[in-house]
Design a protein around this nucleic acid. Sequence first.
DNA 1: ATTCTGACA
DNA 2: TGTCAGCA
Length: 255
Amino acid sequence: MSDEITISELAKLMKVSVHQIRYFEEKGVLHPAYIAENQYRMYGVDEIYRLSHILLLRKMGLSVQMIKECLSNLTTVQISSLFRQALADTEAAITQLQQTKHLISKLLQEKDHIPRDEDQVTYYIDTREEIHLSLWFHMEAQEYLQARQLIQLKENIPNLFEADIHYAYDETDTVGIYTQKEGANDLVLPRGKYLSRHVYVHIEAELKEHINEFYAYAEDQGYPYHGPLIMVEKSYLSLFTPEKLHYELLLQMIE
DNA sequence: ATTCTGACA
DNA sequence: TGTCAGCA
């Protein structure tokens, strides 16, 4: 038995697919040590080390074409700038993953607030931390968001459909639409007790009734409130109840 | 049994 | 990138 190994042995050793090794060869970055009589590709230690380098560079986001160039002639200064770039890239990837992790745990928490059935009325009173809101745009109180408006407005909001969209209703007949943003102060909901209710509806027109019901409940219970009524749209919760739109209604209570 | 090439989604 | 056929 020769000291060289077959392509499948190399694949297992390096935890890559056989196909990928042949692909590297086709692109001219990794050639077998020699070809056996039966046309099998055979690989030695040099190729093993070379493949490990290729995989390392690939992890750093380099195209196979770039790897080919880097592997033939690489100065230490070039390679360290390469590593710096890869470091920045992976740090960016980590923050992205942390954001989705945060979103997932929020989703798991919020799904517990979904009322069991549509007609069940559940109110909560709890203490909220300060919420900083940034104004997105104003809208007539009777209107609803249209697709075309989203096209015009989406630039301002990254991950729009993963965000909590805050509608602030006051005495005027326009509604302010806000997104949560650190350090923003277009509208600040102070820390304190809030009356809260989660609702979900088929069509937005049902919301008006829920809002009136919410006001009525607060007054029936003799809860003095302060500031605008906040309606928080949580579109991501529709994952749990398809075809329905989720909202939380909020009123700050005077203590 | 394993690999090779080539084609395809 | 994975998969599959047809071949050696």
